[in-house]
Amino acid sequence: MASIPANYGLLLAAALFVLGFAGVLARRNIIFMLLSIEIMVNASGLAFVVGGSRWRQPDGQLMFIFILAMAAVEVSLGLALVLQLYHHLKSLDIDKASRMKG
């Protein structure tokens, strides 16, 4: 079975990462921003898995499990905060949350 060159995996991860980053910058709806962050985080996870397979070590996949757990934490905290913010603003637009300036 022909294996996929490691650099392709890294390229894919980088593309996903850039897409996620662009999403965070472009989107103004907080839910979509959280989704974009998920994409960035998972792109990093993919890069770790690629690294792990290149060196034939379990470390890369181990890091991916940590990353999954962290992503779950971030999303649950994020959604809790988003609920609270919606309670105050009646909107999910991040630009409305700009009482502080300077």
């Binding site: 907080i30 960035m40 770790f48 470390d59 905290l77």
Partner: peptide, 23 residues
């Protein structure tokens, strides 16, 4: 919320850097 968004973005940048170094 602001801290959550920016800290998560920075964490993923950090992770991506670590993945490159590991690779």
């Amino acid at each position: 919320v602001k801290y959550l968004i920016l800290a998560s973005v920075s964490t993923s940048v950090l992770l991506f850097g670590m993945a490159f170094i590991y690779d």
